[in-house]
Amino acid sequence: MSILDLDYMVGLVPILLRYLPLTLAMAAAGMALALVLACGLAVIRVLRIPGLNGVTLLFISFFRGTPLLVQLFLFYYGLPQVLAFLTRIDGITATIMGLTLHFAAYMAESIRAAIVGVDRSQTEAALSIGMTNGQLMRRIVLPQATRVAVPTLMNYFIDMIKATSLAFTLGVTELMGATQKEAAGSFLYFEAFITVAVFYWVIVELLAWCQRRLETRLNEAYRR
């Protein structure tokens, strides 16, 4: 056993950097789409829209109740056999789809809780001065719900960035896929995987830093 091959690890950094944008792009796309979907689902749950409420509950139950890896395989390998128009779905699209649906199911519940958590008397106050329901949501409820939801939503974003690594099982060469290929060529598995681990770790720490700054800003109105 030799000690760590540091030169190899340093040499790996620029190679992996080339695949970083794809990892970040998949996470960003997944997060953006999941946020939109989750907001819609949360509003359906808060307003208990007949019919849609049941569908939403089933959706959340399924995507929270099954592993992300199973869902990804289902979209990439399974669905094209059933739905002809999906035959040309590529790994990246399938990954974004899976991340979106899976994380939207989780995020919908925390957004719903944040909306419900806004002090009911403020809703009455807004209505009492003649605001419409839309104005009430936009100007009073959602800004306050955002503050409550941000910490958990950021957690899901962090989780999602790491979950993009599953894309390599669909043949996508992103950070994890690239590392796997490099390691298979050099047989330096430990060096390769500890390097990519540090990559993810640094990304997540940068994000956590952003999160702290964002939370400080959002909390400004509530300091005594």
């Binding site: 002090d119 008397s121 403020q122 009455e124 106050a125 009492s128 009073i140 503050r147």
Partner: peptide
């Protein structure tokens, strides 16, 4: 309306 618990917009 003036509310018992003020009900100011916290944001």
């Amino acid at each position: 309306f003036v509310f018992q618990n003020y009900a100011l917009f916290a944001n």
